[in-house]
């Protein structure tokens, strides 16, 4: 069993961070993981991105040409990576910023208004947590308890952010969970 995802967005949207958190959570629950930052021609075109693989056995290629999932936080990311998603795979679209539908019809598409939800929670920087929650909710790639523990650890230096980000994660998780039912 393997989950892999390309998480992409503008620099500053926190896509590298949620990728690392995903990898950490996977590792903490005993899975094999890899996290690979934008490298190669990927760096061009207005997106910063990372590839995360979470697997039951040692990760073969850390480079994923056709990911099982794409988490697109902005339009250039969707434009760039949509064609590469594996047939039958999953595309999460940050519908707060991306005003188009997916072109692909052979994949599952889930719209997540990550920024709107974050704003609602008065946590505008927490859009990435909403998106992360949606991905985990839709894929169950890692355990919720593990993710919560990791959010506590990640924001240990800013205790005020812990509960707000856990809240954002859960709002996203609910959207993800509902979306695949």
């Amino acid at each position: 069993m393997q989950n892999d995802v390309i998480i992409a967005g503008f620099g500053g949207q926190g896509v590298m961070l949620i990728g690392k958190m995903l990898a950490y959570a996977g590792m903490n629950q005993g899975k094999e993981v890899s996290w690979l930052p934008s490298y190669g021609p990927e760096m061009r075109g207005g997106t910063s991105n990372c590839t995360v693989v979470i697997s039951d056995k040692p990760v073969a290629s850390p480079v994923i040409q056709s990911p099982r999932a794409l988490l697109a936080m902005n339009l250039p990311s969707l434009d760039k990576f949509e064609p590469r998603v594996k047939p039958g795979g999953l595309i999460l679209i940050n519908s707060s910023l991306i005003k188009r539908d997916a072109v692909r019809t052979d994949v599952r598409v889930l719209k997540v208004p990550a920024n709107d939800v974050a704003n609602e929670l008065d946590n505008p920087k927490g859009a990435n947590m909403v998106a992360l929650g949606a991905y985990v909710g839709a894929t169950r790639a890692v355990d919720v308890a593990e993710m919560e523990a990791l959010i506590r650890k990640t924001f240990a230096a800013k205790p005020k952010l812990i509960d707000r980000n856990i809240e954002a994660f859960h709002r996203g998780y609910a959207i993800g969970e509902a979306g695949v039912k």
Binding site: S34, W35, P37, Y39, P62
Partner: peptide, 10 residues
């Protein structure tokens, strides 16, 4: 290669 240097793994 650059992947070994840049990627994160346990």
């Amino acid at each position: 290669d650059g992947l070994i240097g840049q990627m994160m793994e346990p």
